[in-house]
Write a protein that binds this DNA or RNA. Structure first.
Length: 141
DNA sequence: GCCAACGTTGGC
DNA sequence: GCCAACGTTGGC
């Protein structure tokens, strides 16, 4: 399996995990990304790809798992044709949120984008990183 | 609230 | 096409 994993960042003040969960199965369009690398990651996503949901600025922890439920399409919040977005829906809570601090303290995760490319809002996650973070979050997969 | 990092913009 | 200026992000 060459399943790809991702990480989505959001400031809870702007769009929190609770708001995301409230959207249920319908999910939410992940608008507002204005960064080419992040956009390219979204273009590479497939339906059913899973990702971590990370709270930046406040919380600073991975709080849940999401799943891609619509392929990349033009971002409705801008006229600029360069920007695309996907839709994601909440799948489940992280039983025990994994903090940035814990991630930084784990040598196995020292290459994670969250550590090396802190400001990138949509990031790829390697399968072994995914497994490790799930383990830390006490998430049985 | 500060400030460092870094991506984007725009003048040349 | 370069690069300086600027704006934004995000940890602390």
């Amino acid at each position: 399996m060459s399943e790809q994993y991702w990480l989505f960042k959001s400031e809870p003040k702007t769009w929190s995990w609770d708001q995301q969960k409230a959207k249920g199965e319908a999910g939410e369009t992940w608008t507002g990304v204005r960064n080419y690398l992040a956009r390219n990651h979204m273009r590479a996503m497939k339906i059913g790809d899973r990702g971590f949901y990370y709270h930046s600025n406040e919380g600073l922890e991975i709080v849940g798992i999401v799943e891609v439920c619509a392929l990349s399409h033009p971002d409705p919040t801008t006229e600029d044709p360069r920007w695309d977005c996907v839709d994601i829906r909440a799948v489940r809570d992280m039983p025990r949120p994994v903090t940035l601090k814990a991630i930084k303290a784990n040598p196995k995760l020292s290459d994670m984008s969250l550590v090396t490319s802190m400001r990138l809002s949509v990031q790829p996650v390697k399968p072994d990183e995914w497994a490790e973070v799930c383990r830390m979050g006490e998430l049985e997969d």
